[in-house]
């Protein structure tokens, strides 16, 4: 199994699988959060289900591991690639018309990570984490916390900005992940690029509705 770290395609394979895993999580997370738009009670029910239960905890741990792997491999790949590029750089800047996001995956990912830390601190820490350690200030009614949070326009703007960055990461990441595991050819390459753009846009819209709606509805 050492090829998963020693060979370039092995490393890319891990990058791809961890990325696809997070894509699945995003879908789940978005569907669950959209409950907020329809009914605060429904959302609170879901939060209760995903509190300090063994399955929610295992889920959280697996998810955290997936993120950690993706980030560690991202750092490894980026450093190796900088080294492979060599010390001397071109003086004339590259005129090759590549997709912007494909060249900025690390910086996009890093910004998403910063947002993630803020997001975990604002919500997860006050909900699941405090409940886990038995802190009495743990929030039981998730909807109150979320609705309260999004009354602040700045918070809404920061969340929307993060979703846009995620959109850029996914417009390249989605098809790149499938290409990496070999699911691409002359016909499918065009298709997975289109599907990736549609998917990234759905994620962007789905997540953006929530803070905007909660900001104006309450």
């Amino acid at each position: 199994m050492s090829w998963l770290i020693k060979s370039s395609i092995g490393r890319k394979f891990i990058m791809s699988i961890s990325g696809l895993f997070m894509i699945l999580f995003l879908l789940f997370h978005m569907s669950m959060n959209l409950a907020l738009v329809f009914s605060l009670e429904a959302y609170d029910k879901i939060c209760e289900l995903l509190g300090a239960n063994w399955y929610a905890i295992i889920g959280t741990l697996v998810l955290a591991a997936g993120f950690a792997v993706h980030i560690i491999y991202a750092i490894m790949l980026t450093l190796q690639n900088r080294k492979a590029r060599g010390k001397e750089r071109y003086e004339s800047s590259s005129k090759t018309p590549t997709q912007w996001s494909s060249k900025n995956m690390f910086i996009l990912g890093l910004s998403i990570l910063l947002f993630l830390i803020l997001h975990l601190y604002q919500l997860w820490y006050n909900m699941q984490f405090k409940e886990l350690i038995g802190d009495p200030t743990a929030v039981s009614k998730g909807s109150e916390l979320v609705v309260g949070l999004f009354q602040n326009s700045w918070v809404v703007l920061v969340y929307l900005a993060a979703f846009v960055l995620l959109w850029f990461h996914l417009t390249h990441g989605f098809w790149s992940a499938l290409h990496t595991i070999g699911w691409s050819n002359k016909v499918w390459l065009k298709r997975i690029k289109v599907i990736g753009n549609i998917f990234a846009t759905l994620i962007l819209i789905g997540f953006s509705i929530i803070p905007i709606y909660l900001h104006f509805a309450y």
């Binding site: 090759t96 590549t98 997709q99 790149s176």
Partner: peptide, 25 residues
Amino acid sequence: GFGNCTNTGACEIECPKNISITNIA
């Protein structure tokens, strides 16, 4: 010491022989 491919597609655009990145897949 060559790097890890991240599918930027620059190679295909600049290739004088039009080799497609579907070969990479």
